[in-house]
């Protein structure tokens, strides 16, 4: 499978990259784990490919005033193996470790993955539950949007033409917070049929804060506000998890019918909530 011909551009700074990306025929290349397969299948045929890997400063992972700042070019392997992320934001490390396989995690980046916004990707569930902030740069400057605003629809994000995801910011978890990501995977691709990220603050089993992020179930990742409210008002995990399917227009494909996906969502929500509760102790 041979891609359509393209010009290969290697900017050495962010302003240079943004200038090149202002061309509507140009496409940003990070790890290429989604874009290159699409180009080989000729589902995508950009005339210019702007390889971001020569742009300095986009791979760092650091802690700054109660947040972890993850550069857009940090790979899934960088994130799953980072001591800082594992200690301070284990949910993000757990989601990263669930992506694809080791070869894909060596190349694929967090910025590329979320900008692609596959409805069955793993990060979105975690970023929704973490109430992450995503920094988007353009020639006019950089703006920050919440995960809830970022993920708009299937393969659609808040990133505008010529813009670039440059950083993901997630909270350093407070003591007493437990998190878990539970996923039913499609065995051939590794993508989530349903994935649920749970993030809870609890004291002796009483939940004071609940954040539930969901991926794979419908066209776009989302926060399960109904489940969160039930958990915060004292419902047991099973009963709260059952609400995850309320009002959801579930995906249906050869891997899982809508009805089965909704069932899986209830099951995996309960698993994630129980595991997060156990981790909060």
């Amino acid at each position: 499978m041979i891609a359509h011909p393209f010009d290969y551009l290697t900017p050495k700074s962010l302003p240079e990259a943004l200038l090149l990306l202002a061309d509507p025929d140009a496409k940003a290349l990070a790890g290429g784990m989604s874009l290159i397969p699409m180009m080989k299948l000729r589902l995508a045929a950009p005339a210019k490919l702007v390889d971001l890997r020569g742009v300095p400063g986009l791979t760092s992972i650091s802690e700054e005033s109660g947040r972890l700042k993850i550069g857009a070019l940090a790979t899934h392997f960088d994130i799953e193996s980072s001591r800082l992320v594992r200690a301070k934001c284990p949910l993000l490390a757990m989601a990263a470790a669930h992506i694809g396989d080791v070869q894909v995690r060596n190349m694929g980046t967090i910025g590329g993955s979320i900008a692609h916004a596959d409805p069955a990707a793993d990060y979105p569930a975690a970023l929704q539950a973490l109430e992450a902030t995503i920094s988007i740069a353009g020639v006019g400057g950089t703006r920050a949007v919440s995960a809830a605003e970022f993920f708009v629809d299937t393969f659609t994000t808040a990133v505008g033409p010529g813009e670039l995801v440059v950083e993901v910011s997630v909270p350093v978890e407070a003591a007493g917070t437990g998190t878990s990501y539970q996923k039913c995977l499609q065995p051939a691709s590794g993508f989530a049929i349903v994935g649920v990220a749970a993030r809870l603050q609890a004291v002796s089993g009483n939940i004071s804060m609940a954040r539930i992020g969901v991926t794979g179930l419908s066209g776009c990742s989302f926060r399960a506000n109904g489940v969160e409210a039930l958990l915060e008002s004292g419902s047991d995990p099973q009963a709260a998890a059952a609400a995850i399917a309320n009002g959801i227009d579930a995906n249906s494909d050869i891997h899982a019918s809508a009805e089965y996906r909704l069932h899986l969502a209830r099951v995996y929500a309960a698993k994630a909530i129980r595991a997060a509760l156990a981790a909060a102790r």
Binding site: M1, Y8, L29, G32, M33, I36, P37, K40, D51, R53, F77, D101, V102, Q103, V104, N106, M107, A188, S189
Partner: peptide, 25 residues
């Protein structure tokens, strides 16, 4: 299609699927 891993080589010590990387990279 970057599934099977038969094309795996190490690039700067990291295993990658060489069917899903351009030589220029």
């Amino acid at each position: 299609t970057s599934i099977c891993g038969a094309c795996t080589v190490l690039v700067n010590g990291k295993a990658i699927k060489s069917c899903t990387m351009f030589a220029v990279q």
